[in-house]
């Protein structure tokens, strides 16, 4: 019986989230503007500098880099931290604790469901519309396959990180700043907003030791088909490190949950 439970959790979460499909589709409206803004910005920079390549990025790759954050997020983003801390603070975690299933399983199910919707409602239409504005000439079937291979462990990596931070609300009460710190790391250390090539060498050494690069930067590199992620050997190396991070964070999540759940004090009454 238990083996069919997980698909059911995903199915119900999917139905529930699908009510908000237009919230998802907003990405389709914003991303063309990201594209247009960066086209204007980099058109003027590439022309003014009279060059074809900056830091290893051609013009089209550079402009698409700034869309890649959305592309990666369509696959890896989750609301786990916000949801868990909200539940912990309002006392709604009570409801989840009354279910004979671990909270991790419930959250994972709802995250997977939300990503299925995001890929359908955000990723696919946005890619089509943006390709009409500036065609992603760098993309090949093989590079897209490489992207799909690294994006799945990236999802789990991001989920476990979020789950651990969500749990932190059990002791911190308000963990929104922790969440913001995480987003900040994703933005800077993960290369979500600024290509890591623009940072000095020492910063890149630090960034390589953190998991964020394996959630955002490497999937982006695979998507853009940019060296060194344009070769299978490099992709296998990335995959190996992603899996090690996943194992470490998963173990940490289990251990922490056992210790922290004793701190839960349901609000009200």
């Amino acid at each position: 019986m238990k083996d069919r439970l997980f698909p059911e959790i995903i199915r119900v979460a999917f139905k529930s989230l699908f009510q908000y499909r237009w919230t998802f589709a907003v990405t389709v409206l914003t991303q063309p503007f990201v594209l247009l803004l960066n086209m204007a910005l980099f058109q003027s920079i590439y022309t003014y500098n009279q060059t074809e390549v900056i830091k290893g990025y051609g013009y089209v790759q550079m402009v698409w880099y700034f869309l890649s954050f959305m592309i990666v997020n369509a696959f890896v983003w989750n609301a786990t931290t916000i949801e868990m801390s909200h539940k912990i603070l309002s006392g709604d975690l009570t409801g989840d604790l009354l279910k004979p299933v671990s909270v991790l399983t419930l959250e994972l199910g709802s995250s997977i469901a939300s990503r299925i919707i995001a890929v359908i409602m955000d990723f696919l239409p946005t890619i089509v519309i943006c390709s009409l504005i500036l065609f992603p000439s760098f993309l090949t079937p093989w590079s897209f396959l490489r992207f799909l291979i690294v994006i799945i462990p990236a999802f789990f990596l991001n989920f476990f990180t979020a789950y651990i931070m969500g749990m932190a609300a059990l002791i911190l009460k308000n963990n929104s700043s922790l969440y913001a710190v995480n987003n900040l790391f994703a933005a800077f250390a993960g290369g979500a907003f600024i290509p890591l090539e623009f940072f000095p060498g020492w910063a890149n050494t630090i960034v390589a030791a953190l998991p964020f690069k394996y959630i955002f930067y490497w999937p982006i590199m695979c998507f853009l088909n940019k060296a060194p992620a344009d070769e299978w050997t490099a992709v296998l190396g990335i995959l190996k490190i992603q899996l090690i991070w996943c194992a470490v964070l998963f173990a940490a999540a289990l251990v922490l949950w056992k210790r922290l759940v004793a701190h839960y004090c349901a609000a009200g009454g």
Binding site: S44, N49, T51, S177, L178, A180, V181, N183, I194, F198
Partner: peptide, 30 residues
């Protein structure tokens, strides 16, 4: 949270400026 939020909001607002600065300092700019 209050102290962290203040710092974080600063860091986030800085993304645009930092990006423009980095591009500018490593190319001829615009």
């Amino acid at each position: 949270n209050f102290i962290l939020h203040t710092l974080i909001s600063l860091a986030f607002s800085s993304i645009g400026p930092v990006l423009q600065y980095l591009i500018f300092s490593q190319t001829r700019g615009f």
